[in-house]
Design a protein around this nucleic acid. Structure first.
Length: 459
RNA sequence: GGCUAGGUGGCAGAGUGGUUAUGCAGCGGCCUGCAAAGCCGUCUACCUCGGUUCGACUCCGGGCCUAGCCUCCA
């Protein structure tokens, strides 16, 4: 089976065939590092991490680049607010981003280029655009001349006329056309800036992705990914810059866009102030629970984030880990991947269907014996691994939450011993009283042939 | 106004021209001193109006509703 992906360029699912199977290239728009990532930022990180794993399982050499935007006016603002230099801000939040995404099971991409480290490439690309007549200088700015690229709007399917009619922003007077966008802008004395043929300044937002993907992946790449809100104008502008600078027919062959995370059905965004910060959520919920929630809807659909979605995911993972725990020791060798799960993921990353099959494997497991059971366990763990789930030792999974809740396990243990003595004496009133006390504390107990187990139910 | 996605059972959420999604919750059973957990079984669906078809939740058209983009945004 081959991988099929929905391509925004053609608005349909297409079979993914890399230009060069020996060197598959993928670029995803990464974070602007001026504060902590919210759960809406985490969705593409998780989804494209999964896509990368999937590609890597099929092709010998996949290069995945995810940039760090460390030149941005919001970073400047944050730095000014604290009275520190921008690299203090950007390195702090770059580190936080990697930690937080790591907690969600997101691996590091092959390359993580930073804009500040690519000023030379950015300036060279702008020069090339000027030379080819696709850009012009005006009042210390360099602007991209949209009129010079007739195919502008192809990705987002917009007509230039309509864009002008619907524009809500004031048009800078030095623009030839309202839809022209900035490649380079001047920096004031207090702003961070780099020397350029057009004076001391800094790059516009779009050019860094074009320059860095060309530098690390090549002029034409297989996949370019990002959030749906980047389709216009960011990705449209990237296409214009890259194709014009390189004189190629194509920039990215496949464009993949994820849907939004919503809260109360409204898009989670910094401007609406309804963001939930991953760094904060991790204090209450295991990263794996959040990953499960993020995978529970198809990546192109909106995903409504809620406490109940988290609880449901936690319960489901509890059941899976409990099944693994009760199934005995894990097999030594890596298991085979479940074909249905692979098939679901290869069909435009259908994670809900993949999770349904993961649940099926979990359900089947207790009914199997001997070798069959060992094989099924291996298959479950290996298949879940493709999704970045169930890689924890079950004991660690359950213990982790006890530690996080700060509960004194020795005290619990003492109460449980008291209860089992009472039960032995048929003093069920006392036994049940102890159980009720524990439930009040958010502790649930389970009697099993191996003795009484307990777990934290309220996080 | 232009352009995009959607409207599925109590909730979340896949999918298909005629056959069980799955999870959580509910209900019944097994198990248990009683529970919990687990297992087995089970009830609630496909926005609306037309059309195509032997047959549509699934295809086509109209309508209603929701969200998003057109400004920084994943």
């Amino acid at each position: 089976m081959s991988i099929r992906l929905y391509n925004t360029l053609t608005r349909q699912k297409e079979t993914f065939k890399p230009a060069d199977p020996q060197r598959v290239t993928m670029y995803a728009c990464g974070p602007t590092v001026y504060n902590y990532a919210h759960i809406g930022n985490a969705r593409p990180a998780v989804i494209f991490d999964l896509l990368y794993r999937l590609l890597a399982s099929k092709f010998p050499n996949v290069i995945y680049a995810r940039n760090i935007t460390d030149v941005d006016d919001k970073i400047n603002q944050a730095a000014a607010d604290e009275g520190v230099s921008i690299d203090v801000i950007s390195s702090r939040f770059t580190r936080a981003y990697r930690e937080d995404m790591g907690a969600l099971g997101v691996g590091r991409p092959t390359v993580e280029p930073e804009a500040t480290a690519h000023m030379k490439q950015i300036i060279e690309m702008i020069q090339r655009l000027l030379e080819k007549g696709h850009a012009y200088e005006a009042e210390n700015h360099v602007l991209f001349d949209v009129a010079s690229f007739p195919e502008y709007g192809g990705l987002s399917r917009r007509e230039r006329r309509e864009m002008i009619a619907g524009a809500r922003v004031e048009v800078a007077p030095y623009k030839r056309n309202p839809e022209d966008f900035v490649l380079w802008k001047p920096s004031g004395d207090d702003d961070p800036g780099w020397d350029s043929p057009w004076g001391r300044g800094r790059p516009g937002w779009h050019i860094e992705c074009s320059a860095m993907s060309a530098a690390h992946l090549g002029e034409v790449i297989d996949i370019h990914a990002g959030g749906q809100d980047l389709v216009f104008p960011h990705h449209e502008n990237e296409i214009a810059q890259s194709r014009c600078a390189h004189g190629r027919e194509t920039f990215a062959r496949f464009w993949i866009h994820n849907g939004f995370v919503t809260v109360d059905k409204r898009k989670m965004s910094k401007s609406l102030g309804n963001t939930l910060i991953v760094h904060e959520l991790l204090k209450k919920w295991p990263g794996e629970v959040m990953r499960y929630v993020l995978l529970s809807a198809h990546y192109r659909q909106p995903l409504d984030w809620s406490e109940s979605a988290l609880e449901q995911a936690r319960k489901t993972l509890d059941r899976m880990y409990a099944t693994l725990r009760d199934a005995g020791p894990a097999p030594d060798t890596a298991g085979d991947l479940d074909p249905a799960i692979v098939e679901a993921l290869e069909d435009d990353i259908n994670t809900p269907t993949a999770l349904a099959h993961l649940n099926r494997l979990t359900r089947e497991l207790p009914n199997l014996e001997g070798n069959e059971r060992q094989e099924a366990m291996g298959r479950l763990v290996a298949s879940a691994g493709l999704l970045g789930l169930l890689q924890e030792d079950p004991a660690v999974w359950f213990r982790g939450r006890q530690e996080a809740s700060g509960i004194d396990s020795e005290k619990i243990q003492a109460l449980l011993e008291q209860r089992s003595r009472a039960r032995k004496d048929k003093d069920f009133a006392t036994a049940d009283r102890i159980r009720d006390e524990l439930i009040d504390q958010g502790i649930e107990i389970e009697d099993s042939p191996e003795g009484t187990r307990w777990k934290v139910i309220s996080a």
